[in-house]
């Protein structure tokens, strides 16, 4: 419990720092956001622009602006889109569920594929199966997700017609994007599972268990896997962030609605409140997930909380 509180206390300053950094982002951007608001609307006089600046608090000193920004953020107000005037928080709420769905689906896929192939490779260490699995895993890490996505679409949706081409509703629309996004993570997990299993399999208590005549399968299941779980959970936590960010590209390939597409179009149209809010949101989610992983750690392996 104390460990949990400690970790939580550590996460708070990180999140504050993240918010300050994203806040600064908007102010580092060249050009005047107020002028940008008026472009395409017949222009505006200097007084008009100043009035808007005053209203938005842009004439205040930077620290004051940050405090005001944080007050709003804590109340769930992330500002409004320069382009559509829609509240950024609403845009995030609308776009996050599909992204989360995609991320979780690819995470699930990556864990199932990664763990099972990792075990297979470890058990058959040095044999052809091991080599093939590891080669595929290496290829998986090396393959750009956007190219994989395009290939999946043209083979499984256009050519074989097994899956809908347009993503959207239903699990069938989720399969191909999840594979495109989760393949690399599956490869990384498989390698991790393999190497930690190999390490554990050589240790004394496993050798003892074997010597006691326990069936090989039970040895792996009961002893080895449990101990190999810790590095695997770490990597899963790290990969979650990677997947969340990877959705930026995969959503683009599959024309899927989500935070990623929202972010990219905001960046392309220089809609900074949206970009800022989106980046902040994803970073905070990532920090929270890592916190969760840390806590999970402690729960699985009591030694950790004592050590630190």
């Amino acid at each position: 419990m104390r460990y949990a509180l400690q970790r939580l206390a550590l996460a708070v300053p990180v999140m504050l720092g993240v918010s300050a950094l994203t806040f600064l982002m908007l102010h580092l951007v060249p050009g005047d956001p107020v002028a940008a608001m008026f472009i395409g609307h017949g222009g505006a006089s200097a007084e008009q622009m100043n009035e808007v600046r005053e209203r938005l608090g842009l004439n205040d000193p930077l620290p004051v602006q940050y405090v005001n920004y944080m007050k709003n953020v804590l109340q769930g107000d992330l500002g409004r889109s320069i382009r559509t005037n829609e509240p950024v928080s609403e845009m995030i709420l609308r776009n996050f569920p599909p992204t989360l769905q995609l991320t979780l689906a690819s995470m699930g896929l990556a864990i199932v594929l990664g763990v099972s192939f990792g075990i297979i490779a470890a058990v058959k260490r040095g044999r052809i199966v091991d080599n093939v699995v590891m080669l595929i895993a290496l290829a998986g890490v090396s393959m750009p997700s956007f190219w994989l996505g395009l290939l999946l679409i043209s083979i499984f949706a256009v050519w074989l017609n097994w899956f809908p081409i347009i993503g959207g509703g239903g699990w069938r629309g989720l399969v191909l994007p999840a594979v495109a996004l989760g393949f690399a993570a599956a490869a990384i997990i498989a390698r991790m599972v393999r190497s930690s299993l190999l390490e554990v399999l050589g240790e004394n208590y496993v050798v003892t268990a074997r010597a006691k005549g326990l069936a090989e399968q039970r040895v792996i299941m009961r002893h080895a896997l449990r101990n190999a779980a810790i590095p695997v959970i770490t990597i899963v936590g790290l990969q979650f962030g990677g997947l969340l960010a990877g959705a930026v590209i995969v959503e683009q390939v599959f024309s899927r609605q989500g935070i990623g597409r929202m972010l990219v179009s905001a960046l392309q149209s220089r809609d900074f409140p949206v970009a800022q809010g989106g980046v902040l949101f994803v970073a905070v989610v990532y920090v929270l997930v890592n916190l969760l992983v840390d806590l999970l750690y402690g729960a699985i392996d009591p030694r950790i909380s004592v050590e630190r």
């Binding site: 679409i153 949706a157 256009v158 017609n161 809908p164 081409i165 347009i166 390939v253 599959f254 024309s255």
Partner: peptide, 19 residues
Amino acid sequence: FREVPENSVRAAAVVNGEV
């Protein structure tokens, strides 16, 4: 009225009957 931003996907969706 469906929005499908990816060009080749839009064309393919008519060919396979999704739209």
